[in-house]
Design a protein around this nucleic acid. Structure first.
Lengths: 211, 211
DNA sequence: TTTAAAACCTGACGGTTGTCATGTTTTCTA
DNA sequence: TAGAAAACATGACAACCGTCAGGTTTTAAA
């Protein structure tokens, strides 16, 4: 959703706060508006029949949550949970729908945004189905670095639990833990508590791309 | 893309024919329009770094190919290949873009369609990352039945090669072959040449859903 | 119709990965 | 701050699955 267009609407709205771990909306919930992330990061996930939670996307500042469901007027297919303390503003459904129907530019902006998401989703499908767990973990670290950056000591700015990493990558947390300690032994990454820092980006990338 | 809206445009266009196996467009190709499928089925796939082709979507009558890339004005992220003899009409880029910018209804229709694709993609991500190969093969057969139907003898109307099934499911063709013969032994399916018929939909479904 | 190529099938085998079990460390909260 | 709960870590083990290697059958082309 376009930042400029949204600003018009969102600036008139008050900001909601969500604490770490708090649910913004659940799967199969009827949404009567979207949430625009101002601060913090949210995980969008879907429960699979085997009882595990698959994280489909990590949404940070500038992302809009729930737009898909609002547009097609369906209950949500994903749940959104705060990974750290978050600020988000709520935009009611009718504000969105009205603007969509009257302002072609807005519709096209939203369309562009969704087209981007769709491409990303295609890439995820290919990665999930063609790469090994080890490659996917390597890729996840690269993704976290590229999208959320590093802190002043070089550690990934977004710290995920081993469990959450497992849910991004689609594996068991034990496997993630094992792979992390393997990467450490090989000098690809280092850790401090839950924090992870990429030490050898080149080798990590080669591993992820199967070179 | 909305069938009504598209009809206006597409009815003025001539139909192109593609033979089985023919490429409609390749990955990383610049598209100057979209293809609207009139007849036949196309596979949309993406080459993964390990050299395997991942089929992301099967598109049949009514589907539009290439709209994502045209809308965001990027080269295509997928390739489209005919699985059987196809009829498709070509709609040039500017016709799409013009209508998008002037007709909000059209934009919203396209948006709805893309939102649907996005939800489907999310589901595929969950399936790929959380289910076993066996479950995914079972699900693929159910999908083929629900989306393309059966012929008069009860065989799936769309016949895929073992290789293509493997590329849908994200595995090796040998694994697909082995799983097919296992399903046959268990009385879940039967085959005649390359053709597959679902014999026990209930059990097949239970298997796919991990019940 | 003959022949080559492609698709299909099966077996063997080893690496990968999920599960269970158990122990340690960290985090949360009363 | 003590105790409980959650998260992290590691080992053992079996099932899963990809790969290789060798066949057979089907398809397509000469």
């Amino acid at each position: 959703m376009s930042k400029e267009e949204l600003k018009k609407v969102s600036d008139t709205k008050t900001t909601k706060l969500f604490k770490k771990g708090e649910t913004i909306f659940a799967e199969n919930e009827k949404l009567n508006g979207v949430f625009c992330v101002r601060n913090g990061v949210s995980k969008l996930s879907k429960l699979s029949p085997n009882g595990k939670d698959q994280i489909v996307k990590l949404a940070s500042k500038g992302s809009v949550l729930g737009q898909r469901s609002v547009i097609v007027e369906e209950i949500s297919n994903l749940s959104a949970v705060a990974l750290n303390d978050m600020e988000a503003c709520f935009i009611p459904k009718n504000a969105i729908v009205n603007t969509l129907n009257t302002n072609p530019n807005f519709a096209v902006e939203v369309l562009r945004h969704m087209a981007h998401d769709l491409k990303e989703a295609d890439d995820v499908i290919v990665n999930m189905s063609q790469k090994t767990v080890k490659q996917r973990v390597a890729e996840a670290f690269i993704y976290l670095k590229n999208n959320f950056g590093e802190d002043k000591d070089g550690y990934l700015a977004l710290t995920l639990s081993r469990e959450d990493i497992a849910n991004v990558v689609g594996t068991a947390s034990e496997s993630v833990i094992r792979i992390i300690s393997e990467f450490k032994k090989k000098g690809l990454i280092k850790t401090f508590g839950k924090k992870v820092a990429i030490v050898d980006p080149q080798s990590l990338n080669n591993l992820a791309e199967a070179l």
